[in-house]
Each structure stands twice: as structure tokens, then as C-alpha cells.
């Protein structure tokens, strides 16, 4: 499928809707993912990210709208969609009692990969994720990062054109997360696989070519990380003062800027050339009969977090555990007890 800009599109979503009973998890979203780009879905838990992935990989049926993956409709051409995609789920989907080899072998059987292809590709992929010497080990002996790498290798065994990654580094330590990203970037350079990923880690979203910001089932913005950050505009000054209310009023009166209050009660001001603006603020505050005391001030470049707050009006919050999260926790406990 070729769009107006001449890009090939790997994923095309048009007014997609998904309801669970009365709850609309995905609310008329439309977007397009170009071939061989890394496209990120950024949003809090419960925003509709996993639901969207599940529709795109044919696990869920859309309530309304349409979606095509590699040119195949997800409702009418499920088998073709499934053959042409690879998925790394948020929750582990390896059989831990089996060895890595057996997990890969079973995958190859289900994707109807010939014995020769399987042998060649599995060696190649296990080398790519540095697990060659662990091939015959049971997966239960693997660390969290190793399991993820094995899942990536397995997901690529049938040469998918699009790889879906649902929170690929969730629950991994920062070092392992960086490591996983090295593999993913290498993968994109070497094989031009399109990647569609969801995350609620801001720093991780920076790795994407383009990001869709999603909240309450709707896409708020789609752009490159750099362009999104430009929307915040210039620099961010964070202030702590003795009297925030008075301070923001004076900022408005004297400088014509709107300050907003951050989650910890600090004042946040968006401005061009923040380094030059700080002295002016302090001057303004110390003027007059009723000076405002500045307790701390800091200056920084906007992050995607700021973009998110600006566009949605709230921070990416940790949501209360839903029933699935509870099941997941219980599972971890069960897993520990079993060992």
C-alpha cells in the first residue's frame, strides 16, 4: 500500500474502535506506520495501547473502523496478517519448562518453516541476541533480559515484516533495557523490520522515529520526538516560591506568561531563552512592597513527559492495578513458590 507521500505503509488504521461492554478502550483512532520505521505508542496504563496491539495482531476483533497490516485487513485476512507479523508480548509467552531450542522449534512448526531454514535462521538469530551458548538450556534458568532477547529472536524466526513490541522492556533494569534497545536498533539497521511498540517510559519513546501520544483511548498527537518537544516551546523553568499564587499572577501581569503548577506544587514556565528570563523573574519578584521569595529555580529542556502533560493536562500516572495486573502479581508469586 502506498500513501500520498510515496511511503509504503506497514500499518494503516482508520477510525478504529473497540468497546468492552460500556467501556470504550479505543475511541476512533487513525494513524499510519511507514515501512521500516520505529513507531511508538506512548501513554499511561489503560490508555488503549495493548488493546490496539491486540487488534492489529488479530487477538481482538475491532468494534468499528478498520485496520490493515502489511496490506491485509485484520478482520478478513487474519491468517495472512498472522504470518507476516511477529509479536513480543508484555507478559512472557515462552514455555519456561522447555529449552530455548524447543521454544524456537515449536514456533518454527507452527509457522511452517522448513527444517533447513529453521536451522540456519535460529543459529543466526541466537547469535544476534548473544544466546548461542544457552540454546539447550531450559528457559527457567534465564534472566529476565535473556528471556526478552529469546522472545525477540523467536519473534523474528519467520521473517515478519512488522514486529509488534508491547512494553518490551517492562520490569527490566535500566542496563538490560539499554541492552535490548541495542538489539532492536541493530535489527532495524540490518533487516529493515518495521517496529510498532507501546511504552510508558519516556526515555524509551525517544528511540522511536515517530510517536503517537495516546490517552483515554484517543490519539492526542503523532509526530517525531523532536517536533513534539518543540510544541512545548523553548525551555522550561521550574520555580519554588514562598507564594505561588501571587507569583503566577505577577508573571502574568509583568511578563505576560502563563505559569502552571506541577505535580509537587512547583511552578513551571515555558519560555524561549530561559537562561535570560530567570534574572528577569527574580527581579520582578523582589520588586514592590510585597516581595516573593524564590526558594529554588531550575532550567531544563522539555522532555516527552512535558509534552505529554501539555497535551493531556496530566502526568503519565501509575494506574490502580486492574484485575489482569492482580493476576500477573499472583502469577509472579506463584512462580516464586513453585521454584
Amino acid at each position: 500500500m502506498v500513501n500520498s507521500l510515496g511511503h509504503m505503509s506497514a500499518i494503516q488504521v482508520d477510525k478504529l474502535i473497540r468497546d468492552f461492554g460500556d467501556f470504550r478502550a479505543v475511541n476512533e483512532i487513525s494513524f499510519e506506520v511507514h515501512e521500516s520505521e520505529i513507531f511508538g505508542f506512548l501513554g499511561p496504563n489503560g490508555a488503549g495501547k495493548t488493546t490496539t496491539i491486540n487488534i492489529l495482531c488479530t487477538l481482538l476483533r475491532p468494534t468499528g473502523g478498520s485496520a490493515q497490516v502489511n496490506g491485509y485487513d485484520v478482520s478478513s485476512r487474519q491468517s495472512e496478517v498472522r504470518s507476516s507479523i511477529g509479536i513480543i508480548f508484555q507478559d512472557p509467552s515462552l514455555d519456561e519448562e522447555l529449552t530455548a531450542y524447543e521454544n524456537l522449534r515449536f514456533h518454527a512448526m507452527m509457522y511452517d518453516i522448513s527444517r533447513e531454514d529453521f536451522k540456519r535462521r535460529s543459529e543466526e538469530l541466537m547469535e544476534m541476541v548473544d544466546l548461542t551458548d544457552k540454546l539447550r538450556d531450559q528457559v527457567r534458568t534465564y534472566s529476565g533480559g535473556m528471556k526478552r532477547r529469546l522472545e525477540i529472536a523467536r519473534g523474528l524466526l519467520h521473517r515478519p515484516r512488522v514486529l509488534f513490541l508491547d512494553e518490551p522492556t517492562l520490569g527490566l533494569d535500566p542496563q538490560t533495557r539499554r541492552h535490548i534497545w541495542q538489539y532492536l536498533r541493530r535489527l532495524r539497521e540490518q533487516r529493515q523490520v518495521t517496529m510498532f511498540m507501546t511504552t510508558h517510559y519516556m526515555d524509551e519513546a525517544e528511540n522511536c522515529n515517530r510517536i503517537a501520544i495516546i490517552d483515554h483511548g484517543q490519539i492526542v498527537a503523532v509526530d517525531t520526538p523532536a517536533n513534539l518537544k518543540e510544541r512545548v516551546g523553548g525551555d522550561l523553568i521550574t520555580l519554588r516560591t514562598s507564594d505561588n499564587e501571587n507569583a503566577s499572577q505577577r508573571l502574568k501581569e509583568v511578563h505576560g506568561v502563563e505559569a502552571r503548577t506541577g505535580p509537587e506544587g512547583q511552578l513551571i514556565v515555558e519560555t524561549e531563552r530561559g537562561d535570560q528570563f530567570i534574572p528577569k523573574i527574580i527581579e520582578t519578584f523582589s520588586d514592590g512592597a510585597n516581595p516573593i521569595e524564590v526558594q529554588s529555580v531550575s532550567l531544563r529542556q522539555p522532555t516527552l513527559e512535558d509534552v505529554f502533560i501539555k497535551l493531556t493536562g496530566h502526568a503519565i500516572r501509575e494506574q490502580e492495578a486492574d484485575s489482569k495486573e492482580q493476576m500477573r502479581r499472583r502469577g509472579r508469586m506463584f512462580g516464586r513458590l513453585r521454584r
Partner: peptide, 17 residues
């Protein structure tokens, strides 16, 4: 039930089988 959410069966459910 368990396997479909958190196990190998999840991988089976998206395979072209």
C-alpha cells in the same frame, strides 16, 4: 486460562494456525 494470558499459549493464539 493461565497459559493464554501469561504463557506459551499466548504465542500460539497469534500464530497462523
Amino acid at each position: 486460562v493461565w497459559d493464554r494470558e501469561f504463557g506459551f499459549l499466548k504465542e500460539v493464539m497469534v500464530a497462523p494456525v
